[in-house]
Write a protein that binds this DNA or RNA. Structure first.
Lengths: 302, 302
DNA sequence: TCACTCTTGAAAGATATTTTCGTTTCGGCC
DNA sequence: GGCCGAAACGAAAATATCTTTCAAGAGTGA
């Protein structure tokens, strides 16, 4: 019995079909059809028996209705219903455009933050100058040593980059102390790289070491949200991070950090590509070494 | 340990969940999960028996997999699948599925990384248990003090959270040294909060302080990519970060960091909401204080 | 190698769906 | 008004599907 119902289980057209077919339905079937059309999600959660009870009819009637609507049986109607419900669900855009409010439920906070960070990523990727990025990558890959400066939230980004570069066998530092940064910077010379990460582009503690490095002939890179800020004076290459609106509950640091991290990741992957021969085994080795730091039994999980 | 995954049958988070849970699955279950993730629509059309045959396993395994993914049974998984299929139908993901290659031009690297991190954010948001999140937020907001543990890349995330909490006037620490972490943890007591951040969930240096905090009666939170890993033993609340495929050039650390940061941001904003009266002025004050650290002239920008 | 645990599928058991079939209802006709 | 037939309907049997149990097999560490 290959059957093959001619009706392609219509997805969204269900409500329409119900209206069209209603006249040719018996009273009980109409009740079922109406229930299904008015609350697809709810009905999708019910079994034949449940729907029969809800509509005050019998299982047989429910099945007959499903057939009339063009499905082989109730099971398939139910599947279609679930799909319909999901569509409605997703269609109802949560209106994430609004800012985060003090009384937003936690689920909204999650949605808004995620959406916002996604937006930041897209903006950053779109605004990134690949020529500058490529030049920076080339410089780092060839450098004897790379210093990364950053304070506060940007300091963490600086450390992130440093950790990654170290992992592929390059020499990198992210001095936490501004004074140390300057004294380190003095040691840099042509062929070395100094990277300053600062959203505002005006953080003195970060500009200063970059200036020193610049004056000592190192290749300098600025990762900043303000391409016209003081820090760029001493930068051979400027990588622009995106700036998004901030608000009381969503400090700028949040999206600038996301943006900076993307830039830093791009730098890293670019460098890793260039040093593939040495980077790949180095990465593998660091995984290896790390395995021992995890609890021997590895836990109950597999 | 009342277990019972509180995971509400997530609609769109399925692919993400499959990735997250894959490591804790047996071989046959992975086959089933993979089939389901790669072709939701097709699988929705199959019965347990059909899917079992397709994947060369048994009905029992299929049901087990459905359970692991957070559904009461196969029937419900199937319903979710149908919904997912409908969503995909309408959404049509463009998907830059290819991995980053050694010879990708830099522009592609940027695009792929950005896309990938966006994906990670979406997955994380979809898979985050808002109940757990809310509970964690409440605990932090009310805590006398909050300790955050993390090593390596996760350590930076821990510091990020700490910095933010400090900014709104809460007391937070992120000990960098594992020994310090433990000795600090001893000081925690009921009402205090300890947060462990570890992707693998098996990092001894992070589990240990959490255990100590747990045993001293503190409220403990785990931010991990493995909801069934050892770290969760000592966690009152588990926040799951998403796991995405990694590759040689894109170490897992990259997307897990993105995921962790989103979770941390959500925690922060949630806490800031709850402490709005004190948080708002505190944030304003920290901006104020920071202004002086920027070069006096403020640059030509603006 | 042995003991042990974890994984797995076959089959029994439980539910859900579909079909069958007899009862009820309703409209027309005698 | 009462009788007849067709359609509507639901109860329950029959079937399909899903879930659970259980024992054998695979893999692992001692």
């Amino acid at each position: 019995m290959k059957e093959t119902f001619s009706t392609p289980p219509a997805p969204g057209a269900l409500a329409a079909k119900v209206r069209t077919l209603a006249p040719s339905m018996t009273r009980s079937m109409q009740r079922v059809a109406e229930a299904v059309a008015s609350d697809p999600a709810g009905c999708a959660a019910l079994t034949v028996t449940g729907l029969a009870e809800l509509t005050g009819t019998s299982e047989a009637t429910v099945v007959r209705t499903a057939r009339l609507l063009g499905y082989p049986g109730y099971r398939d109607l139910r599947l279609a219903l679930a799909g319909l419900a999901a569509q409605q669900q997703s269609g109802r855009a949560p209106a994430i455009t609004t800012d985060i409010a003090v009384d937003d439920p936690i689920a909204d906070v999650v949605a808004k933050l995620a959406y916002d960070e996604q937006q930041t990523l897209a903006d950053t990727a779109a605004g990134l100058d690949t020529a500058q990025l490529g030049a920076a990558v080339a410089a780092i890959a060839a450098a004897r040593r790379t210093d990364v400066y950053g304070i506060g939230a940007s300091g963490l980004v600086a450390q992130d980059l440093t950790q990654k570069l170290l992992r592929i066998g390059l020499i990198a530092h992210a001095p936490g102390d501004p004074h140390l940064a300057v004294t380190n910077a003095v040691q840099l010379r042509a062929g070395d790289v100094a990277i300053a990460i600062t959203h505002s582009g005006s953080t003195g503690d970060v500009i200063e070491p970059l200036r020193v490095a610049f004056e000592h002939g190192a290749t300098t890179v600025a990762v900043t949200g303000r391409p016209d800020s003081p820090v760029t004076q001493y930068a051979d290459h400027v990588l622009t991070t995106s700036t998004s609106r901030e608000s009381e509950l969503r400090p700028a640091a949040m999206s600038s950090r996301t943006s900076q991290l993307l830039v830093v990741d791009c730098l890293f992957v670019g460098v890793a590509q260039r040093c593939y021969e040495t980077a790949a085994p180095a990465l593998a080795a660091s995984y290896e070494a790390l395995a021992h730091r995890h609890s021997p039994r590895g836990g109950t999980h597999r």
